[in-house]
């Protein structure tokens, strides 16, 4: 899918994109700012899936960690009264990181459809727990108040999406994307190509394929959890159906495949396209939204296996 040469550190691009988003804030209509922020949140989940895809792995249960992040933030808010977005984010990442570390010992030996199915089963277990536990809000879930940052609370007249929350999401997404970019360009990231291309050879190069998969799994989980925290803070609500159910995981897979695995920007671009199209589709052709997704996915599989990003590569010329 992606040749070795495709990784190029894109620090400048990430800084530029983040600065542009922050600078555009005063000009953006509310819906556009909201869409941009939601796309960053979902894009983080897809970015985690992109790491796994580079390892040749697809998880049909990434909603598990998305839900863990969202619920960690919601529970910390509900029961501990924490409103600080930084603390909530760290809580979500820590919870997902620990659980992924433990589950990683099981999944790291699995590949192909077994990896996909095992993660699906994990996420459905969590769905079963969340939907049936009254203390966790059952199928109704939780509401979350408007978050603060380091003591800065929004005024009473401010809506849900304040500049503080927007800025926080933009800057942390950029920082995380930059880190992932570096990791993908380092031996850890390339080990993924080894796992995908020929695991046996990788082992004989003294690299533990299982260890590398475990590491990637934890990274992907943390990214999904951070995306979950952001989404919950933006939407103000979390339910099992919208986080842990398999259809949500399927959506993330769709976005990751649509974007392609060529660059850390790809999942964010794909998620933005996804959000925009959904907004319009639900308004004008609500009964054809999933059909649109399905047809797009088929077209990408058949004609654009490198995803949207391969179009960018094509524009730049194949070899750079």
């Amino acid at each position: 899918m992606t040749a070795l040469r495709n990784i190029r550190p894109t620090t400048a691009g990430i800084v530029l994109a983040a600065a542009a988003l922050l600078g555009l804030w005063p000009l953006l209509p509310a819906w556009a700012a909201h869409t941009a922020a939601v796309s960053l949140g979902g894009g983080l989940v897809a970015l985690g899936l992109m790491i796994l895809i580079r390892f040749g792995l697809v998880s049909f249960g990434q909603g598990l960690f998305f839900a863990i992040g969202g619920y960690a933030a919601a529970l910390a808010n509900q029961f501990l009264g924490i409103t600080d977005m930084l603390v909530l984010s760290v809580a979500g990442i820590a919870a997902a990181g620990m659980i992924a570390w433990a589950l990683g010992y099981i999944v790291r030996g699995h590949r192909g459809i077994f990896f996909a199915m095992l993660n699906l089963a994990f996420s459905m277990i969590l769905f079963g727990i969340l939907a049936k536990t009254v203390a966790l809000g059952s199928t109704d879930g939780f509401s979350v108040g408007v978050p603060t940052l380091l003591g800065v609370a929004p005024g009473p007249e401010a809506g849900r999406l304040t500049f503080v929350l927007f800025g926080f999401i933009v800057i942390s997404s950029a920082l995380v994307a930059w880190m992932v970019d570096r990791i993908l360009a380092s031996p850890v990231g390339y080990a993924g190509q080894g796992v995908r291309e020929n695991e046996l050879r990788l082992r004989y190069l003294g690299v533990s394929a299982r260890g590398a998969v475990h590491l990637a799994y934890i990274m992907a989980a943390k990214l999904a959890a951070l995306g979950g925290v952001f989404t919950v803070l933006l939407i103000g609500h979390v339910t099992p159906e919208d986080t842990a159910y398999w259809t949500k995981s399927g959506e993330f897979v769709f976005v990751a495949i649509l974007g392609g695995a060529g660059n850390v920007a790809a999942p964010f671009i794909a998620q933005t396209v996804f959000e925009l199209v959904r907004t319009f589709a639900l308004q004008y052709v609500p009964e054809a939204w999933q059909m649109l997704l399905g047809i797009t996915l088929l077209l990408v599989i058949l004609f654009l296996p490198g995803g949207l990003w391969s179009l960018v590569d094509r524009l730049r010329g194949r070899d750079a």
């Binding site: 070795l4 380092s186 080990a191 080894g194 020929n198 990788l202 190069l205 003294g206 690299v207 260890g211």
Partner: peptide
């Protein structure tokens, strides 16, 4: 071998990942 990559990329990948257990994540391969 790594069948989807070129000869040079096979060796570059091999040289770059060889024996790495915990390489620093910020140093490119």
């Amino acid at each position: 071998l790594f069948p989807g990559l070129t000869v040079y990329e096979n060796l570059l990948l091999s040289v770059g990942v060889f024996g790495h257990r915990r390489p620093p994540w910020w140093r490119p391969l």
